[in-house]
């Protein structure tokens, strides 16, 4: 797995809940590509114009609060968000992201460290975040090793498939 990610940033506020990331009226959709077409619709109607594959989402505290919908992660992962860095994440969103292989980094002070559009280089193993635009560096929390393993496998599904094959 590539543990060093590069991308431009899009910056959002605090308490961005899953109803905003993925509105409830689309919950009956099950195909990832269809789900992807409604990413961040409730937060930022211009998201799809602004967003480029590989971009990194930056957010203030409690990103992903509210409902347990995995659609919120599927939509961001499928459009091509490479990582999300936030002051803190809601618990179910955090689990869902790790399970689906979308890296998250908890980083105090991230909002003072980036402006929208800055280019970042994120080192997942060390938790190091380098702002290429400003030349500064900051450290977020390191991901626990089992989480890194899970992301390295591509998510929990691959992890179980591999485990099953080993048993056989």
């Amino acid at each position: 797995m590539n543990t060093v990610l590069k991308g431009k940033t899009l910056v959002y506020g605090k308490n961005i809940d899953t109803d905003q990331i993925y509105p409830g009226r689309y919950l009956e959709l099950v195909e990832p590509q269809e789900i992807a077409s409604h990413a961040m619709e409730g937060v930022d109607p211009n998201f799809s114009e602004k967003f480029n594959k590989g971009d990194i989402i930056i957010a203030d505290k409690n990103f992903g609060c509210g409902s347990s919908r995995e659609h919120a992660v599927i939509t961001l992962k499928t459009v091509g968000v490479s990582a999300i860095i936030s002051e803190s994440f809601a618990r179910i969103f955090y689990r869902n992201s790790i399970n689906l292989g979308l890296p998250l980094i908890i980083c105090q002070g991230i909002l003072d460290f980036v402006n929208e559009g800055d280019e970042l280089e994120v080192h997942l193993i060390e938790g190091k975040i380098k702002n290429i635009t400003t030349g500064k560096e900051i450290f977020g929390e390191k991901l626990p090793s089992f989480v890194l393993d899970m992301i390295a496998e591509g998510g929990i599904k691959q992890y179980y498939i591999k485990k099953k094959n080993v048993k056989k």
Binding site: S68, E70, V73, I92, R95, N96, N99, I156, Y160
Partner: peptide, 13 residues
């Protein structure tokens, strides 16, 4: 406690 779909699938497994 609440979880997402894939966590729940891993419990069913």
């Amino acid at each position: 406690t609440g979880v997402g779909a894939t966590d729940l699938a891993s419990i069913m497994l």
